[in-house]
């Protein structure tokens, strides 16, 4: 009951406070901050830690090959991005971010597609296609071990507020918000699972449930479907906003790609 009341008043606060200052306030980070990894069974953790057996590396191997494969225009990703020129080590930890040219919020998938259309004269890859997943996983892997840190100022502020609103709003037939599970009740049992803090730092991740690698947006679609809400589209503005909110909320945790999740 007490938690419910606290939640209701929090909902009222976020709904009633319109000014930018209150929506930009830092997220209520669960303490201590724990990656999804910490909520897994030991053998699932062992699979993530095994740099041979972790099936996510199948996509990373392919991503690495694609990264150095020249497009029809003659340009490969690796022609611009080397260890010394425009290096990508650590870069993924600062996504989503505002693209200076368009002013839009872009995540890693969108950035890769922007590179393709702007510099490689290639069509964008379809969201959740094996190619885009492979490239995204490879680029994220180059930041494995880098703590997440994102900018929520300026043009990103409205996106951040929108993501936070999505996270805190009850939805679906179960009438549940993300925050009710992942802020208020993490660590407790829900059937056979322990509720995690809901961080996206392992993504793209290999989920045992999917039997495949998948993007954070695929995970968010499953979350929405889980509370019987209408899942948003891959790459939708709602999910981009949530991705930014989640990144800010996970700030300090390290990128784990390729994570293994249940």
């Amino acid at each position: 009951m007490k938690a419910g009341l606290a939640f209701l008043s929090a909902l009222c606060l976020s709904a009633c406070g319109d000014d930018a200052a209150s929506t930009q306030s830092p997220p209520a980070q669960p303490q201590p901050l724990l990656s999804g990894y910490e909520f897994l069974q030991p053998q699932t953790r062992a699979l993530q830690d095994d740099n041979f057996a972790n099936p996510g590396f199948l996509w990373i191997d392919r991503g690495e090959a694609l990264f150095s494969t020249a497009a029809a225009s003659g340009e490969a990703c690796s022609d611009c991005h080397t260890d010394t020129s425009l290096p990508l080590a650590g870069a993924a930890a600062h996504y989503p971010q505002i693209d200076a040219e368009s002013g839009d919020l872009v995540n890693l998938e969108a950035r890769i597609n922007l590179c393709r259309t702007r510099y490689q004269d290639e069509a964008p890859l379809e969201y959740e296609s094996d190619e885009l997943l492979s490239l995204t996983a490879y680029v994220a892997y180059l930041s494995r071990g880098t703590p997440v840190s994102v900018d929520i100022e300026g043009a990103a502020a409205d996106w951040y507020a929108r993501g936070r609103d999505y996270f805190e709003t009850r939805r679906g037939q179960f009438n549940l918000s993300c925050t009710q599970c992942h802020d208020d009740n993490w660590g407790k049992k829900l059937r056979g699972d322990t509720i995690s803090q809901g961080h996206g730092t392992g993504f793209p991740a290999y989920r045992l449930e999917w039997q495949s690698l998948g993007s954070l947006h695929r995970r968010l679609r499953d979350c929405d479907a889980g509370v019987r809400a209408e899942p948003r589209m891959f790459g939708s503005d709602d999910y981009l906003a949530v991705e930014l909110y989640l990144a800010k909320r996970a700030e300090g945790l390290e990128i784990e790609t390729p994570g293994v999740r249940r």
Binding site: F52, A53, P55, L58, R62, Q211, S212
Partner: peptide
């Protein structure tokens, strides 16, 4: 010997 192959089975 360890082998891993990408296949949906």
């Amino acid at each position: 010997l360890k082998v891993l192959i990408q296949h949906p089975m």
